[in-house]
Design a protein around this nucleic acid. Structure first.
Ligand SMILES: [Mn+2]
Ligand SMILES: [Mn+2]
Ligand SMILES: [Mn+2]
Ligand SMILES: [Mn+2]
Lengths: 217, 217
DNA sequence: AAATATTTTTAGTCTTATCTAAAATGTTAA
DNA sequence: TTAACATTTTAGATAAGACTAAAAATATTT
């Protein structure tokens, strides 16, 4: 149906649309996909012809509803495979992304549905991200960024803005995991670092770390 | 490392080398891969540069030991994934080939090794074909073709020469499965059809069917 | 409102993998 | 041993997806 390249572009556009509300720009896509703006333009034209994006020259793009469906299918596969790799094959959460990047392109509806059933219909992937169901329905949890919590507020680490291997390794090292209860003990005004208390320990995280932790109150 | 196209060529050449002993011809590869001889020539040159095949113009090709290693890795992945699909995801043996054709190109040594361990080190895929181990060692069972059995001889269906979906469906319909004990009751000289007796029933199979059943005595 | 800077697109090139048509080579059989 | 036939290779084209360099459009300053 669609090539791997097309699927990757669609997925990136979907993610960027979530992060920034408006039309997604050529440059932004190029940066995310580690490619050149001219390559992006070429692809956007192709995707527009296939009715996957609305594209007007110099105006950025938006996914069509058809495009959104494709994106959600790819994301569904990515996250189910990640869950499989961690829960069944015992990989660590920072080891699975690259493999899932490949597995998400395996073409077979039944395969992914059987896998989902085999895994007992997990709702979240190893990084706390929701797994779209067969019909593309996705459960979005209302969270707020750790940066926006006030001193004394409590919450639970729900998901991560950045799921890069290095950030995941950092969290592991600092003994922070999804579903951990945290409490803001203090906020340092000078550099916005945050003093946290968890069930088991105290620690200070930088502003950069805090802005990548999404908290459910 | 190698592209999907390259891996597919290498795998086909490996299979053809097993079936016909000598050098494999351009036309034979083209037929097997459903492509044109000129495309095969192009690819053979590339594979020769990468030291995966020995190629002399007009003389056909042979895998180098490096090529053989690549072939065995791809076959290992194909068969382990097929085993996973049948044993864990409950697909039928005639449903898994296409998916395995895609999964065999997923690049990750550790993934396939973990999968193998998860599956408890199976020795044969759902079609009776041996699964190469991590080092490319492959266990080849000595079998003889059903066509070569004499009246009265007994054996066990070990593996299939043709594993196409239509043949697999035929076997299922006729209630024949791998590891079934069979006995040749009679051979019809006119058309070489064979009257078989199994644990549960009697049946007649055509010459064409017989030549695709490999029997362990 | 210009001038300047930034973003985006176009034009042209490259690589991989495919194809068709034609030429070259190899094989068979008169 | 040469003509006919079959196989294989070459030449040239195409399509997807990437790139660089340059042009065009848009955005931001002055
Ligand atoms: Mn991922
Ligand atoms: Mn994830
Ligand atoms: Mn198969
Ligand atoms: Mn098989």
């Amino acid at each position: 149906m669609f090539s791997q390249a097309e699927e990757n572009y669609i997925k990136s556009i979907y993610v960027l649309e979530l992060e920034f509300q408006n039309n997604v720009s050529t440059n932004l896509i190029a940066k995310k996909m580690q490619t050149k703006p001219s390559s992006v333009t070429d692809m956007l034209k192709k995707l527009a012809v296939k009715d996957l994006v609305d594209y007007k020259k110099y105006q950025g793009v938006q996914l069509t509803s058809k495009g959104k469906k494709v994106a959600l299918k790819v994301i569904r596969k990515h996250r189910l495979w990640e869950y499989f790799l961690v829960k069944e094959l015992k990989f660590k959460w920072d080891e699975v992304h690259e493999m899932a990047e490949q597995l998400e392109h395996i073409k077979s509806e039944t395969l992914i549905d059987r896998l989902e059933s085999f895994l007992k219909y997990p709702k979240f992937d190893p990084h706390g991200d929701p797994i779209p169901d067969k019909d593309g329905k996705i459960m979005i949890t209302k969270t707020i960024n750790l940066l926006n919590l006030k001193v004394g507020q409590k919450g639970v680490i729900d998901n991560l803005k950045d799921s890069s291997d290095t950030f995941l390794k950092y969290l592991t090292k600092k003994n922070l995991a999804l579903r951990d209860k945290i409490k803001v003990v203090d906020i340092e005004p000078f550099d916005n670092s945050i003093h946290l208390e968890t069930k088991t320990h105290h620690l200070v995280v930088s502003k950069k770390v805090a802005e990548n932790l999404n908290i459910k109150i």
